[in-house]
Design a binder for these strands. Structure first.
Lengths: 239, 239
DNA sequence: TAGTGTGAAATTTTTCACAGCA
DNA sequence: TGCTGTGAAAAATTTCACACTA
C-alpha cells in the first residue's frame, strides 16, 4: 500500500455523498440502516470489489455478513478524510464565477467556511456577497496573517481569476500561507520554484493544487462523442 | 494499445491549451515556432516521456531532432480530439451557476456554441441571458428535435440543476437525444436502465457523462492537507 | 449464510532506454 | 547531433477468489 490512489479518493468521496443521502432517508423512516458493498457499488456505478478495496485504504468498517452501518461508515470516512472539522476558504477573483461559488450552498455549510473574498477590479471592491465584503487582492497576505493570529487559519484558496492573472494570484495565495488551491483557470500553476518541490499535485512548501476545468470537461465529452470512452471510467469528476 | 487512457486525454488537453498560448505569443513576435517534448513537459508539469507517449496515442506529429511545429501540432491535436468544429450545447438549470456558465467566455467561442437555456423556475422563464431566452424544461425534447431538423444537432448538455432534480433532468436530456452530459451536480447519474448499457462513463445509448464537482475538489484538498498526495498526480482535473 | 477484508493475478499506466531520422 | 517514436521493464491499479467471521 503506497498511499491512497487519487482515483480511489475520488470514489470514496462519492460513497460518502451516497451515505449522506442514505442517512437522511433513514432518518425520515427511522430504519435500522446498513449498506452492503454491492448496494454502494450499484449506486456509485462501480463494482463491489472496488468499493471494498477503496474502503480498505482508509480502515476496516464493515461487519462480515452484515455490511456497513450507514451512520458509522459515514462518520468514519468523514473523519478519515479530514472533513469532520471545517476548513477556512478564501475566494480570489469575484467575477461571475467567483460570485456563483461564493453563493453556493455548501461553501457556508459543514466542511467549509468561506471567510474572505478578493479581487483586483475596483468596481467590485466593497461590494457585499453573502455577508462578506470584497477586498483588494493586495490585502490578502495581511488578511491571512490576521486570521492565523485569530486561530482561524485560512486553509484553502479558490482561484477564479482570468487566466492571465492565474499564476500571479496563485503565488500570492501561496506566499500568504494558504496550503491548498482549487484552480478554476485552465492554466497549469507553476509553484515548484517558489520554495522547492516539483510535480503538479504538490508544489511549493507542501501546497496542493486541484484543477477544476469545466471547459476541459466539455472537450473530453466532445472527444468521447468521436470515440467512446474506455467504459466505466470515473470521469469528473473521476476520473 | 487499448484506447486512449483517461489520464492521457486530460494531459493532452493541457498540452493543447499550452500550444494555443504559444501560438498566440508567436503570432505577436513572428517567430519560427516549434516546441520540444521537454518544453511542453515543463509547462504542463509532467515528464517529457509522458508527453511523447501521450501524443503517440493520437498520431505522429514531430520532426526528429527538431521537436514539434506549434501550429501544426495544435491543429492536429484539435482535429484528433474532435474540436475542429463546434458542438452545440444546452444548459439545464439556470440558477447562479448556470448563469455564470452561460456567460463564460469560451461557451460562445470556438469549439462550443451555447444554443439553449432551460429551467423549471417560473421566475426565470423568459429572462434573457447572453442573447438567449430561458425556456421551460418541458420544451427541451421539442427544442432538440427542432434543432436536429435544422441540421444543428444539440450534442451536449450542461447539468446545473439542484441535486434533487439531477437524475430526472439527465434522463430528459438523454431522451431528448443529447449525447454527452457535463454534470455539475454531486449526484451519480444512472442511465444504464434507460436504453441498456452500464458503467459510469458511458451510459444509455452511448451517452457519456463527465462530472465536474467542485466541492469534491475542495474535499480532496482537505484530505491532502492531512496526508500529502502521491506526488505529481494530475488532479482535476485528472482523474 | 451473507458479505467483508485481503493476498495474489490480471490489467493498465507510467517510466525508461535506445534505435532512427531530420 | 538532437530529439522523436516506441518496445520493453517497472510500477500502479483493478479485478477477483476465497478465507473468515458476525
Amino acid at each position: 500500500m503506497t498511499s491512497v490512489p487519487t482515483a480511489a479518493l475520488r470514489r470514496v468521496l462519492t460513497y460518502l455523498r451516497i451515505l449522506e443521502d442514505l442517512e437522511a432517508q433513514e432518518r425520515e423512516l427511522g430504519e435500522p440502516g446498513s449498506v452492503s458493498s454491492s448496494e454502494l457499488a450499484q449506486r456509485a456505478g462501480v463494482t463491489p470489489f472496488q468499493v471494498r478495496k477503496d474502503l480498505a485504504y482508509f480502515g476496516r468498517f464493515g461487519k462480515r455478513g452484515m455490511g456497513y452501518s450507514v451512520p458509522l461508515l459515514r462518520r468514519e470516512l468523514q473523519h478519515a478524510l479530514g472533513l469532520q472539522r471545517s476548513s477556512n476558504v478564501v475566494i480570489v477573483g469575484m467575477g461571475r464565477l467567483g460570485q456563483a461559488i461564493a453563493n453556493y450552498p455548501g461553501l457556508g455549510e459543514e466542511p467549509f467556511q468561506c471567510v474572505g473574498l478578493f479581487d483586483v477590479d475596483p468596481a467590485l471592491l466593497g461590494r457585499e456577497v453573502r455577508g462578506l465584503t470584497i477586498q483588494p487582492i493586495g490585502a490578502l497576505p495581511e488578511f491571512v496573517a490576521r486570521q492565523a493570529r485569530a486561530a482561524s487559519r485560512v486553509d484553502l484558496g479558490i482561484l477564479t481569476v482570468p487566466a492571465e492573472q492565474a499564476q500571479e494570484a496563485a503565488e500570492l495565495l501561496v506566499r500568504s500561507g494558504v496550503r491548498g488551491i482549487l484552480n478554476f483557470t485552465p492554466v497549469v500553476i507553476q509553484l515548484q520554484g517558489l520554495l522547492g518541490d516539483s510535480g503538479e499535485a504538490e508544489e511549493g512548501p507542501g501546497v496542493v493544487v486541484e484543477n477544476v476545468d469545466f471547459l476541459a470537461g466539455m472537450k473530453r465529452l466532445a472527444f468521447y462523442l468521436l470515440s467512446p470512452p474506455p467504459e466505466g471510467a470515473d470521469l469528473e469528476g473521476k476520473k
